[in-house]
């Protein structure tokens, strides 16, 4: 029971770690370049969840002072993650641009095929 209790209080962290591993795995093992980018996004999102849940308080509201409310969510992680989302967006857009160019040059989105084509040219 103690484990279940611990898991339920740290549920967000647990989910974040699971998502992180899924993203990491997708990024490294899948051959499709688009799937790699998806993995990158899942990994980033998991980190955002992790960061935001550090500052989250059950029942808290956005930290804009109102009368009669005592519980506020810590705004610092949320503010930081907004920046993180912007960064993730630019990384994704840039990666997609590169993928379009790669597809134009090689005619495939398969990383293995691209490597094979390259090594055939060199060899």
């Amino acid at each position: 029971m103690a484990i279940i209790e611990k898991l339920s209080t740290n549920l967000y962290y647990l989910v974040a770690i699971i998502l992180f591993i899924i993203g990491f795995h997708t990024m490294l093992t899948h051959n499709n370049l688009i799937k790699k980018i998806m993995g990158m996004n899942i990994m980033d999102t998991s980190l955002f969840l992790f960061f935001v849940s550090i500052g989250y308080r059950r029942g808290g509201i956005a930290p804009i002072i109102k009368e009669g409310i005592v519980e506020y969510v810590n705004p610092v992680p949320s503010a930081l993650i907004l920046t993180g989302i912007v960064i993730s967006l630019s990384f994704t857009a840039f990666a997609l641009g590169l993928v379009i160019l790669l597809y134009k040059h090689y005619g495939t989105l398969d990383a293995d095929k691209i490597i094979a084509m390259r090594s055939r040219e060199i060899g």
Partner: peptide, 13 residues
């Protein structure tokens, strides 16, 4: 730029 093909016409952003 993505629509126009990965920024080939204008370079990268």
């Amino acid at each position: 730029e993505l629509l126009e093909g990965g920024g080939e016409h204008h370079g990268h952003n």
